[in-house]
């Protein structure tokens, strides 16, 4: 049994929250550069260039990439031979977020849903926990903005809808979202499972590095089919018209009930922030 102190978890989460918000991953900036080659709209090109510049300023001057430093989402894989000591796992993670958001001058964006009163420290956080074999603890700290989350959708399709129906709903979601979720976006698609699992799959698919192919060749080809359709819509960077509406489609799939075809579309803005921590 390996022991991991909550202090170690708090420190790691704090550092990851700040780093995620200041330093856009090279997978995203590489995708911007690749998009510049394909974008035909002059305004679209100018916007993508400014996004590259924005990421450079944030990294250099230690300020957030985007003022919406997000609701903190934590994906955690805890080895079943790990013993967490010194307090509760949730408290340790939330203390890391609390300290990171305060000391990193990140915006506190969490409020009561009825009174709308800000909780003041960006907690609570959303935790998706999975127990895995071994004695490692892996955490992904994912600050997610409200603008792109608001444009995300979940559909309980009839099985007869099939792949054609799935494509229609994904495209409908992208078109209805238009400029609102800060395109160029990344489209996380979760198919199967059930109501809540499809949404978690869609979100989890966004953890994959941009540009990394789906390991399943059939899904890779479906992702390609969807991105081509999405980039024909003309929505373009910031919705002002152009070839690059989305940088990628990421898909995760699992079996579902014989009566169902759950589909979740989680839109990720271009400020795709995710930090992986292995403890």
């Amino acid at each position: 049994m390996r022991q991991i102190s909550t202090k170690v978890i708090t420190a790691a989460v704090k550092e990851a929250a700040v780093r995620a918000n200041y330093e856009l991953g090279s997978d995203v900036t590489d995708a911007f550069r690749a998009a510049l080659e394909k974008e035909q709209s002059p305004v679209g090109k100018e916007i993508i260039n400014k996004l590259i510049e924005n990421a450079e300023i944030a990294r250099r001057e230690r300020i957030p990439i985007c003022q919406d430093t997000g609701l903190a989402i934590i994906f955690a894989e805890i080895g079943q031979d790990v013993n967490i000591v010194g307090g509760s796992f949730r408290d340790a993670v939330e203390q890391g977020i609390r300290e990171g958001y305060k000391e990193g001058y990140l915006r506190k964006s969490v409020c009561d849903p009825f009174t709308r009163k800000n909780t003041g420290d960006n907690t609570p956080v959303i935790i998706h926990l999975e127990l895995v074999p071994g004695e490692r603890l892996t955490l992904w700290v994912v600050p997610k903005g409200g603008g792109s989350e608001n444009m995300s959708r979940l559909f309980m399709l009839p099985p007869s809808a099939g792949w054609k129906g799935i494509k229609e709903k994904v495209l409908q979601t992208v078109l209805e979202a238009g400029p609102n979720p800060c395109p160029p976006t990344i489209i996380g698609v979760g198919i199967g499972g059930n109501f809540e699992e499809s949404a978690i799959l869609a979100k989890k698919s966004l953890l994959r590095h941009l540009g990394a192919p789906n390991p399943d060749p059939e899904l890779a080809s479906k992702e390609q089919e969807l991105i081509e359709e999405i980039n024909k819509t003309g929505v373009g960077p910031q919705g002002l018209g152009g070839r690059i509406t989305s940088l990628a489609v990421h898909m995760l799939v699992m079996p579902c009930h014989i009566a169902s075809l759950p589909l979740a579309v989680n839109i990720q803005c271009h400020a795709s922030r995710h930090e992986e921590i292995a403890i």
């Binding site: 916007i47 400014k50 996004l51 510049e53 924005n54 990421a55 300023i57 944030a58 001057e61 300020i63 957030p64 990439i65 985007c66 003022q67 919406d68 903005g145 603008g147 238009g178 400029p179 609102n180 800060c182 910031q238 919705g239 002002l240 803005c269 271009h270 400020a271």
Partner: peptide
């Protein structure tokens, strides 16, 4: 950033105002 409702667009025509987009997600810039 993002779309406005028809009511807002009509008000812009009626009261002579404009809506301008800044780059969403370029907060540092």
């Amino acid at each position: 950033k993002g779309k406005r409702s028809q009511e807002v667009k009509d008000a812009m025509t009626k009261y002579k105002a404009v809506y301008m987009a800044a780059i969403g997600g370029a907060g540092a810039l």
